[in-house]
Amino acid sequence: MANTPQAKKRIRRNDRRAEINGARVGRIRTFVKKLESALAAGDKDAATAAIAQVQPELARGVAKGVLHKNTASRKFSRLTKRVAALG
Rank of each mutant, 00 (worst) to 15 (best):
K33M: 12
P56D: 04
R29A: 08
I51H: 01
T48A: 15
E36W: 13
G26Y: 02
G26H: 03
V32T: 15
A47R: 02
R27L: 09
K33Q: 13
V54D: 02
L39T: 02
E36N: 15
A41H: 05
R24H: 15
K44N: 04
V54Y: 04
L39V: 05
R27Y: 12
A40I: 01
E36C: 12
R24N: 15
G26E: 04
T30L: 13
V25P: 02
L35N: 10
I28M: 14
K44Q: 09
A41P: 05
G22W: 06
I51A: 00
R27K: 11
A23F: 04
V32N: 13
F31R: 00
A23I: 08
A23L: 01
A46H: 03
A41D: 05
I28W: 09
P56G: 04
Q53M: 09
K34P: 02
V32H: 12
I28E: 10
A40E: 12
R24E: 15
I28T: 14
A41Y: 00
A46T: 03
A23K: 07
K34W: 10
A46W: 00
A41K: 07
A46E: 07
T30N: 13
K34G: 11
E57Y: 09
G26L: 03
L39D: 03
K33L: 15
A47E: 00
F31P: 06
R27T: 09
I51L: 08
G42D: 08
L35K: 12
T30P: 06
V32Q: 15
P56T: 00
R27M: 12
Q55A: 13
A40R: 11
K34V: 09
G26P: 01
G42V: 02
E36A: 14
A40Q: 10
R24K: 15
E36G: 12
V25D: 06
A41L: 01
A23W: 08
A49S: 09
V54M: 10
I51S: 00
E57L: 06
A47W: 02
A50K: 07
K34T: 08
A47S: 10
Q53H: 08
S37M: 14
G42I: 07
E57G: 05
S37K: 14
I28H: 13
D43L: 03
E57F: 08
A40D: 10
T30Y: 10
D45H: 05
D43K: 07
V32I: 15
A50H: 07
T48L: 15
A46Y: 02
A38C: 13
D45Q: 03
E57I: 02
P56R: 03
I28F: 15
D43I: 07
P56S: 10
D43F: 07
D43C: 03
E57M: 06
K44S: 04
Q55S: 13
A38H: 07
K44L: 10
A52F: 14
P56I: 09
S37L: 15
V25L: 10
T30H: 12
R27D: 09
A52E: 15
Q53P: 01
S37P: 10
D43W: 03
A40T: 11
I51E: 01
